[in-house]
């Protein structure tokens, strides 16, 4: 690691004062499970690391009639074990799938959402876009995007909680150096597809931080998430899908289906959601939703296989959200 100054602010305001507006000069440290690896490989080389560990307001979970308000520094284990999270099986399944007690007890919700892509071109120092995407388009892109990949960005969003949270309508509270920088926005707006090397994959300015995630009450929505993994180990999934549905009287009146590990951002599949509206959830309709999801897929040279995995993930997430057996494991 390059030497850096360490700052441990005690409040949100103090944390913001430590952050630089210059991209890359300061980095925010949460659980450290991603940032330390990036710093060791000199992929990020900040002059100052701002730890949020001692900012008390970021460590709390508040549950009331408005839903759940989860601080960015709440660990995945704390969120999983909180009684109020039982209404969000999609979130619990996603955390359980992370399947490493070290990552669950050390990793935080804010860090999970703000972790950097696993793209091996990025992690080997070729930059997030690796020669405007040509190196990846012509290279080994087996784990890369099959949606939203027409621009230079070919990596996939690594977050495993974002699909579930976005499907549930989560919002994120972001704070910045000035009072007017504070904003509460839909979680999907935290992510963006960078168009050039100066942009990151999050919409945060360098001196902004994620403070809380706000989850609305689940109400009548069934919700579930499903990951397709290579094995039972701690690796990242190949594709993932999360679904929330309202099905009263046997037919779906509302649906939200969000895919993970398939695009530079969490991928909201309007096609899949539209296909299931006014229909009952069963093997056939859930399978058709999977087909609808991949109707707009544009796989690269080595990841055509992900198309079929998305079909399966969408189908099984929908069946699970409806409380049905998936037929697989």
């Amino acid at each position: 690691m390059k030497a850096f100054e360490y700052a441990a602010p005690r409040s949100e305001q103090e944390a913001l004062e430590f952050l630089s507006a210059d991209r890359g000069r300061t980095e925010v440290l949460a659980g450290g499970t991603d940032l330390l690896g990036l710093m060791k490989k000199l992929i990020v080389t900040p002059d100052r690391v701002v730890s949020l560990r001692q900012v008390g307001s970021l460590h709390t979970i508040d549950a009331d009639s408005q839903g759940l308000r989860v601080g960015a520094m709440v660990t995945l284990e704390e969120l999983l074990d909180h009684p109020a999270s039982a209404q969000y099986p999609a979130v619990q399944q996603a955390i359980r799938s992370i399947s490493s007690q070290q990552l669950q007890s050390q990793g935080t919700l804010g860090g999970e959402l703000c972790q950097r892509p696993r793209c091996w071109y990025f992690r080997d120092g070729h930059g997030l876009l690796a020669e405007s995407g040509t190196a990846i388009a012509e290279g080994d892109n087996r784990y890369h995007a099959i949606f939203g990949n027409s621009g230079p960005a070919k990596f996939v969003c690594p977050s495993r909680l974002a699909p579930a949270l976005i499907a549930l309508g989560a919002r994120v509270r972001v704070i910045g150096p000035n009072a007017e920088d504070e904003t509460v926005m839909p979680l999907e707006h935290l992510f963006r597809t960078p168009k050039h090397d100066q942009q990151r994959e999050h919409s945060l300015a360098p001196d902004q931080i994620v403070a809380q995630i706000l989850l609305p009450p689940v109400g009548e929505r069934g919700n579930a998430s499903y990951e397709v993994r290579h094995g039972a180990g701690p690796e990242y999934p190949l594709v993932a899908a999360a679904a929330t549905i309202v099905a009263i009287g046997g037919v779906v009146s509302e649906a939200r289906i969000v895919l993970g590990q398939v695009a530079p951002t969490p991928w909201i599949s309007a096609e899949a959601a539209a296909s299931i509206i006014s229909l009952p959830v069963n093997e056939e309709t859930a399978g058709a939703a999977g087909d609808a999801a991949v109707s707009v897929a544009t796989p690269l040279s080595h990841n055509e296989y992900k198309v079929q995995l998305v079909r399966v993930a969408v189908k099984r997430a929908l069946l699970l959200a409806a409380g049905l057996e998936t037929g697989g494991f």
Binding site: T33, V49, E77
Partner: peptide
């Protein structure tokens, strides 16, 4: 820290000692 080889208990919780300052 992906191997778990550096696991120690910190405040009773399992952490990878190589991914924490």
């Amino acid at each position: 820290g992906s191997s778990g080889g550096s696991t120690v208990l910190l405040g009773g919780k399992p952490v990878s000692a190589n991914s924490i300052l």
